[in-house]
């Protein structure tokens, strides 16, 4: 398939690249952990995309924290605009998009035409972001990818009272020292994360349907718990981590 536009999302944890056809369908994708040399990595990934049919002439939009470092991009847009665009293209519905990324989380209100009406961000505190799970997984010596299933399967949970990632870590240590089963702790951690995100959603007022994007959307427990807290199901975007890059590519399609 011929690529008509490219989108690159340089996030704090992963760099995502999407190539779309003229009709706006994803035809090519790449995902790599973000390297310290952002410029070089972005250009190497883009070179790969541009080697695809049509890729050479495809306009490129960059998004994510590192968006300004992508020298060969035609334009830079924030993740707010791009995630909303990507998810709206998939769902075709207005609603509230919760995007939980590696180092921040955002709640975006999408209008009937897919436009961003309003947004709020948590960019001040690691609790309520992917980093919270990463750090606590490290402390529990668990692979992050398995945490969600473990939380869902757990039959009980302990409340994690600390709202700070660093203090949550020490809380875990004392819980484990008291013999609390790891699964209960893991379930409690998910609940704590969801708690943070829920207040962000509530600050915009309840506007279902709810969608979830960003890397943390891979975690089924987060979606399930968030749905419980909001009293309405939370739909996980397909390929949630790619929605920013996808939205960027869709923006690149526009003149």
């Amino acid at each position: 398939m011929t690529l008509a536009a490219l989108g690159i999302d340089v996030g704090s944890t992963a760099t995502k690249l999407v190539g779309v056809t003229a009709a706006g369908d994803i035809a090519w994708r790449r995902l790599a952990p973000t390297a310290p040399r952002i410029e070089a990595q972005a250009e190497a990934l883009l070179a790969e995309a541009r080697a695809q049919p049509g890729g050479e002439r495809a306009p490129t939009v960059a998004t994510g924290y590192g968006r300004k470092l992508v020298a060969s991009a035609t334009r830079a847009l924030t993740e707010i605009t791009c995630h909303a665009r990507g998810v709206y293209r998939r769902t075709g519905r207005a609603g509230t998009l919760v995007d939980i990324g590696g180092q921040d989380s955002k709640v975006i209100l999408i209008g009937a035409q897919g436009q961003v009406l309003h947004f709020v961000m948590n960019d001040k505190c690691a609790a309520g972001t992917g980093r919270f799970l990463e750090v606590t997984a490290g402390r529990l010596q668990l692979p992050v990818a398995e945490m969600g299933d473990m939380a869902r399967a757990a039959t009980a949970e302990v409340p994690i009272s600390s709202t700070c990632t660093v203090f949550a870590e020490s809380e875990i240590v004392s819980l484990l020292a008291r013999g609390t089963p790891v699964e209960h702790v893991v379930r409690g951690l998910h609940r704590a994360l969801v708690h943070r995100v829920t207040s962000l959603v509530r600050s915009l007022g309840p506007r279902p349907p709810y969608f979830l994007s960003g890397g943390v959307a891979h975690n089924a427990a987060v979606a399930a718990f968030l749905g419980e807290a909001l009293g309405a199901p939370v739909e996980r975007a397909e390929e949630p981590q790619l929605m920013g890059a996808y939205g960027a590519a869709l923006s690149a399609l526009e003149p």
Binding site: L77, T78, E79, I80, T81, K124
Partner: peptide, 16 residues
């Protein structure tokens, strides 16, 4: 004040 975060928020707002 965090320049990076403020810039990011501001740009997103201006895009809206």
């Amino acid at each position: 004040y965090s320049e990076e975060q403020a810039e990011n928020r501001l740009q997103a707002f201006l895009e809206v």
